[in-house]
């Protein structure tokens, strides 16, 4: 078995010790990120299947229960997430061009969008709480739908949008840290665009989930 000497490594800079060069590291990170996103799809996937089965079994009640939700407010949020996704794409583009000033600008936009999303979500949830539509002992539903099915509907609504909301919250934290690294001009982000790209991939995924959640919860047609 032949052998060559391992290339020398400096442990500063963006290259980690287990990789030979930045290119290998970048490709590995992106692949790892996609593997992570695939598991995220399956994670949400089980919820989407539960949703589909339940809606298939109770189409009319599902429609009636969904009228309690505010599609306009959620529509604002949908647009808000689209904008943030666009900001992220632009931030990654400027990171590739090594323009830290512009990157920080776009990233502030993303943070703002995610804050707006969470604030709107807060108002939505607190309205549901006031209307006794949170499943549990205080659940009290008087609408057209069967109360049990309505409880399942709101259970899934809170489970799915809640899990999505947690992802938004995590995304907010990630982007605050990322922006901090860019403001401090840390070489880990300025010399290699991949950390920014990975955060971006995560954020696009959060947007993707919402693209499906929005029509499935807020825009149900009357059967």
């Amino acid at each position: 078995m032949a052998a060559i000497t391992a290339p020398a490594h400096d442990h500063h800079g963006p290259l980690h010790h287990q990789f030979d060069d930045l290119e290998q590291q970048n490709e590995t990170y992106i692949l790892g990120m996609w593997a992570f996103l695939v598991q995220e799809i399956m994670f949400f996937g089980a919820l989407f299947v539960s949703y589909a089965i339940m809606r298939y079994k109770h189409p009319m009640d599902w429609w009636a229960a969904h009228t309690e939700l505010d599609w306009k407010l959620a529509g604002v949020n949908t647009f808000n997430l689209l904008v943030s996704s666009f900001f992220v794409a632009m931030a990654v583009r400027n990171a590739q061009l090594k323009q830290p000033g512009k990157v920080v600008g776009w990233l502030f936009g993303v943070i703002l969008c995610s804050l707006i999303f969470l604030v709107i979500k807060y108002f939505e949830y607190s309205l549901k709480w006031q209307h006794h539509l949170v499943p549990g002992p205080s659940f009290y539903y008087t609408g057209e739908a069967n109360a049990g099915v309505a409880q399942t509907f709101f259970g899934l609504y809170f489970a799915m949008t809640g899990l999505h909301g947690i992802h938004v919250l995590v995304g907010l934290i990630i982007f605050v840290v990322l922006t901090g690294l860019w403001i401090a001009r840390k070489p880990i982000v300025t010399e290699d665009y991949i950390p920014t790209e990975m955060c971006g991939l995560y954020w696009h995924f959060v947007d993707l989930v919402w693209i499906f959640l929005y029509p499935l919860f807020y825009l149900i047609p009357k059967p």
Partner: peptide
Amino acid sequence: ERVFRIGI
């Protein structure tokens, strides 16, 4: 479901 009795 144990906590909130959501009925799935």
